[in-house]
Amino acid sequence: MKILVAVKQVSILDDEFEMRDDGRGVDADFFEKDLNEFDHFAVEEALLIKEAAGEGAEVVVVTVGDDEADDALRTALAKGAERGIRVWDDSLAEVDSIAIAKVLAKVVEREAPDMVFTGAQSADFGHATTGMALAGLLGWPHAAVVSKLDFVPGAATATLHRELEGGLEEIMTIQCPAVLSIQLGINQPRYASLRGIRQAKQKPVEELDLDALGLGGGAVTSASRVRRMYAPEKGQAEIIEGTVAEQAARLAEIIKELRGI
């Protein structure tokens, strides 16, 4: 039994930042990198299924990214995943989620897992695209924003909840193998023990380039292109000015309006 979890090293941008000279990205000095928050839940869900399955079960984590993305894989390995795969080629630096899905599809074909999990979306761009696009390319069953999962390895179907707008959930069954995008809150992600972190350094991480996946020669194309990137004209927060009484009055108005009072 094998579950493949596709993870992403997301970029956390400073409150203050500067654009690149070409106007199509942000200057790299202004980022921190971290494992996507949603992916912690996807990894945990895979680990829980693996642990219930016992001997011979395996969780493999895969990412598409440069060597900085190794940290994301090591984080997942430290929690208990067995091995990692990192795919990179400099030509992937500016591709979109659909192109990433094309790369991942080749990895899934190689690994032939029983299930594929991704986070429901990434915390930086929130495309909510990669996992489902991957399913489309594979022709696999799929469900997005899964907030509860009942899957016994080997079974022909799994039962899941999709979290919809307003907290409503739909319960559905799905044929396996499937690609599921995992929602926050489906479980309580664990923290890696210090021992786990030390052990993760010894776990295998396979590095693949596009040729190894049969994707050389410009086979990985995007469905969109960044024409330009820019900071919004004004900061997001509307600052409520005035005396405390005026501020509170405006705040009360906002509450009443949003609460329909």
């Binding site: 664990r190 923290y191 890696a192 023990s193 210090l194 786990g196």
Partner: peptide
């Protein structure tokens, strides 16, 4: 007891 917490998984 505090030595135990120095090994806690939660950073």
């Amino acid at each position: 007891v505090v030595a135990l917490l120095a090994e806690d998984p939660y950073p």
